[in-house]
Lab assay of single mutants.
Amino acid sequence: PTIVLKVSPEELKALEKAGVEIEKIEKNEDGELYITLTPEALKKAGFE
């Protein structure tokens, strides 16, 4: 199962800087950012 999270541009930068593997980055028509994370990326980021 993949996880989709709504993030701010600042959060996205912080995640990328931390080396979190982001599978997909999407922006909706309201300009909101959503990222898709794999279970492996979540484990690496410390989420179980």
Rank of each mutant, 00 (worst) to 15 (best):
P9K: 10
K27D: 05
L33G: 01
A45V: 05
K27C: 14
E48K: 01
T2V: 12
Y34L: 13
Y34G: 01
D30H: 12
L42S: 07
I3P: 02
G46L: 03
G19T: 02
K13D: 10
P39G: 11
T2R: 10
E11R: 14
T2A: 13
V7L: 05
K13S: 10
E16F: 12
D30N: 14
K6Y: 07
I3Y: 11
D30A: 10
I22Y: 07
S8Q: 05
K27A: 07
E21C: 06
L5Y: 06
I25T: 06
V7H: 00
E10P: 04
L12S: 01
L5Q: 07
K17V: 11
P9N: 08
K13P: 01
K43C: 08
A45G: 11
E40H: 04
E16A: 08
V7M: 06
A14R: 15
P39Y: 15
E11L: 15
G46C: 13
L37T: 14
E48D: 11
A18P: 00
T36M: 05
G19R: 06
K24H: 10
T2P: 12
Y34V: 12
K43E: 15
A18K: 15
E48P: 15
V7P: 01
E16S: 09
E40N: 03
E21F: 07
K44V: 02
I3R: 10
I22F: 09
I25M: 07
P39T: 14
Y34Q: 08
T36D: 02
K27Y: 13
A14T: 14
K13R: 12
K27V: 13
G19Q: 06
G19C: 07
I35L: 07
E32N: 08
A41I: 03
K27E: 11
K27Q: 11
P9A: 13
A18W: 14
T36Q: 06
S8Y: 05
I22N: 01
A14M: 15
A18Q: 14
Y34I: 14
E11M: 15
K43G: 14
L12P: 00
A41C: 04
G46D: 10
S8G: 08
I25G: 01
E10Q: 12
A41T: 04
V20S: 02
V7T: 04
F47D: 10
T36R: 04
K13N: 10
L5T: 05
A14W: 15
T2Y: 11
L37D: 00
K24S: 13
E48I: 05
P1F: 13
E11I: 14
S8D: 05
L42I: 14
K13Q: 09
V7K: 01
G46K: 03
E10A: 12
A41W: 14
K24Q: 08
K43N: 15
D30K: 11
V4Q: 09
G19D: 05
T38R: 02
T36E: 08
E21S: 07
E23T: 08
A45D: 04
V4N: 06
E48L: 05
E10R: 09
K13C: 14
I25V: 09
L15Q: 00
S8C: 11
K43R: 14
L37Q: 00
K44Y: 01
I35V: 13
I3G: 03
P9W: 12
K43S: 15
E29K: 12
L42N: 05
P39I: 14
V7I: 10
E29T: 10
E32G: 09
K13Y: 10
I25C: 10
K24P: 01
N28R: 12
K43Q: 13
E32T: 13
K43T: 14
K43P: 02
A41S: 07
L15N: 00
L33M: 09
L33K: 01
I3F: 08
E16T: 10
F47G: 10
V7Y: 01
A41D: 08
L12N: 00
K17Y: 09
L15K: 00
K6V: 09
S8N: 08
L15W: 12
V20K: 00
G31D: 08
I3V: 13
E21K: 06
V4H: 07
E10D: 13
V20T: 04
P39E: 15
E29R: 12
N28C: 14
P9T: 12
E48M: 02
P1W: 08
L5F: 06
F47H: 14
E26Y: 13
K17I: 12
K17A: 12
V20F: 04
K27T: 13
T36G: 02
S8L: 07
E40M: 03
T38V: 03
E29Y: 11
L12C: 04
K17H: 08
E11W: 15
V7G: 01
E23L: 08
I22P: 04
E11G: 12
L37Y: 02
P9E: 11
A14S: 08
L12I: 11
L15M: 10
P39D: 14
P9R: 09
V20I: 14
E23F: 12
Y34C: 09
E21H: 07
F47K: 13
T2N: 15
V7C: 05
K24T: 06
E29V: 12
G46A: 02
F47S: 08
E32C: 11
E29I: 09
E32R: 05
A41K: 02
I35R: 00
K24F: 09
L12Q: 01
E26D: 09
E32Y: 11
G46I: 05
T36P: 01
K17N: 08
G19F: 05
E48Y: 01
N28M: 09
E11V: 15
K13T: 08
E10F: 07
E32W: 13
P9H: 09
N28Q: 09
I25L: 08
E11C: 15
I3Q: 07
G31P: 01
E40G: 05
I3H: 11
K6L: 11
G31L: 04
G31A: 03
L33A: 06
P1E: 10
E16W: 08
K17P: 00
G31R: 02
K13I: 10
E16K: 11
L42R: 07
K27I: 13
L15F: 06
A18M: 15
P39V: 15
D30L: 11
L5K: 14
N28P: 03
K6S: 06
I3L: 06
L42P: 02
E48F: 02
K6P: 03
P39Q: 13
E26R: 07
E29M: 09
T38I: 03
T2W: 11
V20H: 01
E32F: 13
L15Y: 13
K6N: 08
E11F: 15
I35T: 01
G19I: 01
A41R: 02
T38M: 04
L42T: 07
E26I: 10
K6R: 10
T2K: 10
Y34N: 06
A14Q: 14
E26F: 12
T2F: 14
L5C: 13
I3D: 02
A45L: 14
I22H: 02
A41L: 02
P1K: 13
K13A: 12
I3N: 05
K6A: 07
I3A: 05
E26C: 15
